[in-house]
């Protein structure tokens, strides 16, 4: 029997939520507010007490800066390249690991190693593998006859490609494991039913597997987009954004602006712009996924 809650009872849920809300405010809202405020100041990291309010000047300067636009373009290549390749390789890995074969448990465990390796370590490994004087990748490519002479991959204008390769290696297992877990939760009866209806392997994959693991696909790619966009370890250690500006991405540019140029207000404006662009990207991505109707996922569910 339903009855109206009395005053005290109505207040209780808020009381219980209170500590969590307060924490959220402290941990999320306060820094966010501080960042927005700081982006409106001409502040030097050395003397933040001498900061001057400059309104939107930082934003205008950043948007007019060709280096920012270059970083934005590189960031786009970085995120799209990394996430697409990681997803493709992860999906293939998940399909492989989903089959029965001897030693499967061991392979599954080992395949997670790249994901568990720290970013700086991955950077150093790949820096030396891609080294122009005695890197193993050059050695392999020369032996395969694909190149005739060693190439300094990270000193070429396409250095971002080398960093993307390292990140794909590191990030693909994440997709493989997440997608594998989702695949294993697909009821076998559905495949049986599909086979009875005459579906081939590819059709089973397209019409049974994909729709049922769609929520996982959406969530994992979204997470990866956010992580990759903010992930600067590899670029920072492997190329520092170079040679020149060849591999500079937004987080690296805002780091340099804050800690080398000491313009912390301008750096914050960049970070805020990146956050806004990221939110727009995710919004558009979710709209696109929803329109397809596969899985019928909403922002609320995510």
């Amino acid at each position: 029997m339903l009855r109206r809650l009395n005053e005290k009872e109505r207040f209780t849920p808020f009381l219980l939520l209170g500590p969590a809300l307060l924490l959220m405010l402290l941990i999320v809202a306060y820094p966010l507010f501080q960042a927005l405020r700081l982006s409106l100041f001409d502040a030097s990291l050395l003397r933040p007490d001498r900061a001057r309010f400059v309104g939107l000047t930082n934003y205008l300067n950043v948007l007019r800066d060709p280096l920012f636009l270059r970083s934005l373009l590189n960031s786009t290549i970085w995120v799209v390249g990394c996430v697409t390749l990681q997803f493709t390789i992860g999906m293939l890995g998940a399909l492989l690991l989903n089959r029965e074969f001897p030693g499967r448990g061991l392979v599954r465990g080992l395949s997670l190693i790249p994901w568990a390796t720290s970013g700086v370590l991955v950077s150093l490994m790949w820096t030396w593998m891609l080294d122009g004087n005695y890197g193993v990748i050059n050695d392999i490519l020369v032996r395969l006859g694909l190149i005739s002479q060693y190439r300094p991959w990270l000193a070429l204008p396409i250095s971002l490609g080398g960093v993307i390769a390292a990140n794909v290696w590191q990030g693909a297992p994440f997709f493989a494991v997440m997608l594998l877990a989702a695949m294993q939760s697909v009821p076998q009866e559905l495949y049986e039913a599909a086979r009875i209806d005459g579906a081939g392997r590819f059709q089973q994959f397209r019409s049974v597997t994909i729709p049922l693991i769609m929520p996982t696909i959406v969530i994992t790619t979204m997470l990866r987009i956010v992580w990759t966009a903010n992930y600067m370890d590899l670029v920072f250690v492997m190329t520092g954004g170079g040679p020149g500006n060849a591999s500079i991405i937004l987080p690296v540019l805002s780091y340099i602006t804050a800690y080398k140029k000491l313009k912390v207000g301008e750096a914050t404006a960049m970070a805020v712009l990146q956050a806004i662009l990221l939110i727009i990207t995710l919004f558009v991505y979710l709209r696109l996924v929803n329109r397809k109707g596969e899985g019928g996922l909403s922002l609320y569910e995510v």
Binding site: D131, G132, N133, Y134, Y150, R151, P152, A155, T239, P243
Partner: peptide
């Protein structure tokens, strides 16, 4: 070396 544009201490000493 062709890698000179990005060579730092470790690479220069290593080479």
């Amino acid at each position: 070396p062709p890698s000179a544009p990005t060579d730092a201490y470790a690479q220069v000493v290593g080479a």
